[in-house]
Write a protein that binds this DNA or RNA. Structure first.
Lengths: 73, 73
DNA sequence: TCTATTTGTAGTATGTATGCTATATTTTGA
DNA sequence: TCAAAATATAGCATACATACTACAAATAGA
């Protein structure tokens, strides 16, 4: 498969001013995992994706997409 | 992890009167994969989950949840 | 500027999602 | 009832998600 899923974790994390370590702890994953996700080295499991969406209180589609997110500026 | 994700694929599939083979073909996965998902033997990758939600035209959370879906009848 | 915190990179190990084949069982429709 | 279609079970192979350790580099705060 190796199908890429684009994400906005870094954006949301910056917005909320949360460090990777804090986020990782809140999600119960290793802090390096957040780095890998933000850098797009792999996409999260569905379970982790649901947990992340719940943490940020947004629908999954707001954070994850099979298509690239539009650039901001 | 082995974290379980509950899903309503079978329900939606029945509702739309689509066979596993048809769904699998539309999604581009092996038809046995749908069987494994419906039986809860594993959960889909995030990419596949997003594709399934798109296919059924509902948000991911309508089909997938970290918590058990309430029984219907 | 110095230090602490954060982030990046690398490498190993494990579990699981998925593909695929084959066969058995169940369901459906003519 | 019989045949075709759908579903279940099983087993093997591969790729990838994640944990974890260690260290380097960058950033931020005092």
């Amino acid at each position: 498969m190796a199908e890429v899923v684009h994400n906005r974790i870094a954006m949301l994390r910056a917005e909320r001013k949360v460090s990777r370590r804090e986020l990782a702890e809140a999600l119960g994953v290793h802090y390096q995992t957040i780095g890998y996700l933000e850098r797009g080295e792999f996409s999260p499991s569905l379970h982790l994706a649901l947990t992340i969406a719940e943490y940020f209180e947004v629908p999954v589609e707001v954070i994850f997409s099979t298509r690239e997110f539009p650039r901001i500026s």
